[in-house]
Amino acid sequence: MTVQHEENGNKGVFYIEVEGKREAHMTYTKAGNDKIIIDHTEVGDRLRGKGVGYKLIEASVDFLRSNKLKVIPLCPFAKAVFDKTREYSDVLT
């Protein structure tokens, strides 16, 4: 299962496709030049319960670190993961 990333202007998405269909995604909006706001995470029934949401967060953290960005997790799922995962604290605003 590979997490893919797409950016279009000030919006972006991390997503997973299964058989050509997006089954999970996490969307964000850029907030200036140094931050993103994660606003929504959704995992379809087909992938639910398999840790896919965590994979999306992990991909976003890799992206944040490699681009020297910070995150504001407004999505309740993302916020919960960032709050309980200490090793991600370096990317929080």
Results as ranks from 00 to 15, higher is better:
Ala24Val: 00
Gly12Asn: 13
Ala59Asp: 09
Asp39Met: 10
Thr29Val: 13
Val81Gln: 10
Arg22Thr: 11
Ala59Lys: 08
Asn10Thr: 07
Arg48Asn: 09
Val43His: 08
Gly51Asn: 04
Lys84Trp: 07
Lys79Arg: 13
Asp39His: 11
Val13Phe: 03
Ser60Met: 15
Arg48Pro: 02
Lys35His: 12
Thr27Phe: 03
Gly49Met: 02
Glu6Tyr: 03
Asp62Val: 11
Lys55Asn: 12
Asp45Gln: 15
Ile16Cys: 00
Asp90Thr: 11
Arg46Trp: 03
Val3Arg: 00
Thr41Glu: 07
Gly53Asp: 03
Phe77Met: 05
Arg22Val: 05
Tyr15His: 09
Val43Arg: 01
Ile37Cys: 08
Thr29Arg: 13
Arg86Trp: 08
Thr93Gly: 08
Glu87Ile: 13
Cys75Asp: 07
Val71Asp: 04
Asp90Pro: 12
Leu92Gly: 15
Met1Gln: 13
Ile37Pro: 11
Ile37Gly: 06
Pro76Ala: 06
Phe14Gln: 01
Thr2Met: 08
Val18Asp: 10
Thr93Arg: 12
Val13His: 01
Thr41Ile: 03
Asn33Pro: 10
Tyr28Asp: 01
Asp45His: 14
Pro73His: 08
Lys50Thr: 14
Gly9Asn: 09
Cys75Glu: 14
Asp34Leu: 08
Ile36Val: 14
Gly44Phe: 01
Thr85Lys: 04
Lys11Phe: 10
Ile38Tyr: 03
Gly12Met: 02
Gly20Val: 02
Phe14Ser: 00
Asp62Leu: 12
Gly32Gln: 14
Val52Glu: 10
Ala59Pro: 01
Asn67Ala: 06
Lys70Glu: 12
Asn33Cys: 02
Ile72Ser: 12
Lys68Trp: 01
Thr85Ile: 13
Lys50His: 15
Ala80Asn: 11
Arg22Trp: 11
His5Ile: 06
Thr27Val: 07
Asp45Met: 04
His40Trp: 06
Leu74Thr: 15
Asp83Pro: 09
Thr27His: 11
Tyr88Phe: 15
Ile38Gln: 00
Ser89Met: 07
Ala24Trp: 00
Gly53His: 09
Ala24Met: 09
Val3Leu: 04
Lys11Ala: 15
Ala59Val: 06
Thr41Lys: 04
Ser89His: 12
Glu42Val: 06
Met26Leu: 11
Pro76His: 07
Val61Lys: 11
Val3Trp: 00
Thr29Pro: 02
Val61Leu: 06
Pro76Asp: 10
Val43Gln: 05
Ile38Thr: 05
Thr93Phe: 14
Ala59Gln: 11
Glu6Gln: 13
Thr27Trp: 00
Phe14Lys: 08
Phe14Ala: 01
Val18Ser: 10
Met1Cys: 01
Gly49Ile: 15
Asn33Trp: 01
Glu19Cys: 12
Phe77Cys: 04
Tyr15Asp: 07
Val81Pro: 02
Arg48Ser: 12
Phe14Ile: 03
Ile57Asp: 02
Lys68Gln: 15
Ser89Pro: 09
Leu92Gln: 15
Val52Trp: 09
Val61Trp: 05
Gln4Cys: 06
Ile57Pro: 01
Phe63Val: 05
